[in-house]
Design a protein around this nucleic acid. Sequence first.
RNA 1: GCCCCGGUGGUGUAGCCAGGUAGCACGCGGGGCUGUCACCCCCGAGACCCGGGUUCAAAUCCCGGCCGGGGCGCCA
Length: 425
Amino acid sequence: MRVPIASLGPHMDGQRVRICGRVQRVRHKRKIAFVVVRDGSFDDVQLTIKDPELLKLAEKLDRGYVICAEGIVKASKIAKKGYEMIPEKIEVLSKSEVPPFDPFVDVDHTILAKRLDRRVLDLRNPRNRAILVLKGLVTRYMREYLYSQGFIEVHTPKVTITATEGGAEVFPVKRFDREAYLVMSPQLYKQMVMATGIERFLEVGPCRRAEKHHTKKHLNEYFGLDIEMAFATDEDAMKLLEDSIRYAAEKIFEDHERVWRVLNEKFEPPEKFDRITYDEAREILKKKGFEIPRGEDFGADEERALWNEINKPFFITKRPRSARPFYVMRLDEDPKYTKGFDLIYRVELASGAQREHRYEKLVENIKDKGLPLESFRYYLEAFRYGMPPHAGRGLGLERLMMGLFGIDEVRECVLFPRTVDRLTP
RNA sequence: GCCCCGGUGGUGUAGCCAGGUAGCACGCGGGGCUGUCACCCCCGAGACCCGGGUUCAAAUCCCGGCCGGGGCGCCA
């Protein structure tokens, strides 16, 4: 039976095993050959071949070949890892052409665009694959935490007729004979769910934005981990966000060391998040030479400056009205400010709010923003028959990866990224 | 949407400013090698994005196109 390569070790000296994986490197001499095989367990093993028959076969092996090998594990002082495998049988399951670059050697000095053109090869590099594996694990543990808090999972539609929520542009699509749009976020549907009697739910799904960004932190298609909960405030949403992220980080830290070490040896779960208000953030920035007029949002330089100053994840609360969408609740005592917040963790990776659940105020807000009431008709109707107060947040999974593991390129956090000019692979 | 920068074998680059034989490393093909581990050694093939202009001569200077990279705005 096949065993993971990561399970091998000197302690298995003398045992017979079968491994399957991909040839990472072949080194042969006339009478001895070394074949390094790697599998999905984030480890490799050296097959040492002296048998004349296998030697003949080994000469035909090349990088990329998919093989299985059966043989004896042998503790060895000469082998770098302290053990190696002496195969008795090697089967070739699939051959490989010469790849355009070697994912084990060239990836570090091949520009990202070329790596993304051959993404499957690129992902053979353990570090690059580890990002995706960890992204899956982060998603799993975030869900796990939310489930433990009584959340269920729902799925909102990804095509709609609402051209904008304000903010980003959307992609038009042809829907039979009608014009429709890919949804930029589940926001409107999330709030409508709050009128159904479902009180706490999450959704993991794609968000599409038609913005021609050229930055290290923007995608035209990203995955959002959204939640919405009834009878809750912005404070509740922030606490849940912090608790779920820290839970996921701690689980990964404890249970998946082999994977995170491949990506970032210095990975540590974050300490407790800070909280500052928008106005406090402006004060900090002022001391660092950035004058931000009240009501204006922070730019990239300001965000970086705040991160460098605080140097751990922090919420910015009480965002000004002008920089928030219509569905965010204003403070009754000072309508210039809202119950909206952002989470900064190296980059801005989540934003949320207590929402406006009062029909009249919501209508007023939409008008204030200059948006067409008509295209929100279906949304607004949900607020006319009893809507509990509610709060929620959207979180960019790719950006969470950037924050947690110190990745500075968002495209590395997606299987097949969709950016301005990239529709393939 | 605005602003910068770039395009040399399969990959990464040198050469460009100051025009004159396109160099290097890895990879690839052939050969050698009993302990390698980005193995090593010998031999070989392989490239100036496209079009126009200037010039005795263009990878190099100029113009246009195409393609790519980066920063900002906005956001997650």
